[in-house]
């Protein structure tokens, strides 16, 4: 009987295309997230918006294990005051508060709002006082950032002594510019704010991670916006992100407290998987049981 023709295809190593960017130092210990002068045990930053009740927000934050909460700056209600202030549900002694500049469409407004946020936190002596999550939007439908105004505002805020965590698109050039002008962290979006679409462009995020960490492996890159569920968080960390910022994925879940808990575990598992170094992807199969000692025959 003739030997069957062996079909040996060259195994294509897909690791170059697919594996997580290995830009961090080779340590495997699960260290805290360092952003500016602060160190956070939890790599999740959670937003406080859009919850059905303040109690639900408070309990979801607790379930997430997050130590840093974003907040917005808005007029104090005068005529239809509804109960307590947010800060009676988020203890400013327990959480690091990160004011955002949501709703700002130009650099001057963003700077104005950032300064007001700082003023409130200074009086509360919250360590987030000189932090700001900078958002300068270009469009109210997509909530995409205006890259030019964002760079402009970032520079102004850095010059004024802020540690600026900048919400950005997944454009690697803008991300680079923001780092170069002194952003404490660049926070590229996974997908549009509140869209729940998850990580739409992992390749761009990988490029951003490589570019920003090239000579600076500990530079924090936090994926912010568009996270929809726990697996999105795990994917973000497996790509090599240092942190994930999310709000809607918890607030709009059917059971927010349960989703917050899921997010906590996803962040831990995604980060550990990244540190563990995943196996390469292969085009062809590779048996996980040994060839030696096999008692059965195979056709070829």
């Amino acid at each position: 009987m003739a030997e069957p023709t062996q079909c040996i295809a060259k195994d294509v190593d897909m690791s170059e295309s697919w594996s997580a960017v290995d830009t961090a130092s080779k340590q495997t210990a699960n260290l805290p997230l360092k952003v500016g002068k602060y160190s956070l045990e939890s790599r999740l930053i959670v937003g406080s918006g859009r919850f059905d009740t303040p109690e639900l927000m408070r309990d979801s934050l607790a379930a997430s294990g997050s130590q840093c909460v974003t907040v917005a700056v808005r007029r104090e209600r005068l005529y239809d005051r509804q109960g307590k202030n947010l800060l009676e549900y988020i203890d400013p002694d327990k959480y690091l508060l990160l004011p955002n500049t949501a709703g700002c469409y130009n650099a001057a407004d963003a700077v104005r709002v950032a300064k007001l946020g700082r003023e409130i936190l200074r009086s509360l002596e919250n360590p987030g006082a000189d932090w700001v999550k900078l958002e300068v939007l270009g469009d109210s439908k997509t909530l995409l950032p205006d890259p030019i105004a964002t760079v402009e505002a970032c520079k102004m805020l850095v010059d004024d002594g802020f540690q600026v965590l900048v919400y950005s698109s997944d454009d690697p050039i803008v991300a680079r510019r923001l780092k170069d002008i002194g952003a404490t962290s660049v926070m590229p979006a996974g997908s549009p704010i509140g869209s729940g679409q998850g990580i739409l462009n992992p390749n761009n995020l990988r490029i951003i991670l490589e570019s920003l960490k090239a000579d600076d492996p500990d530079y924090p890159v936090i994926i912010d916006a568009g996270v929809g569920t726990a697996s999105d968080v795990a994917v973000a960390f497996e790509l090599g992100a240092d942190g994930v910022l999310l709000n809607s994925a918890i607030a709009y879940a059917r059971h927010p407290i349960l989703m917050a808990e899921a997010m906590k575990f996803a962040a831990i598992s995604g980060r550990k998987a990244y540190l563990a170094g995943r196996m390469p992807k292969r085009l062809y199969a590779q048996a996980s049981s040994p060839e030696a000692g096999i008692i059965t025959s195979r056709p070829w």
Binding site: G49, N85, N247
Partner: peptide, 10 residues
């Protein structure tokens, strides 16, 4: 005069 406070936000 503007009086502002912190509210929920992402």
């Amino acid at each position: 005069i503007e009086v502002v406070t912190l509210v929920g936000g992402g």
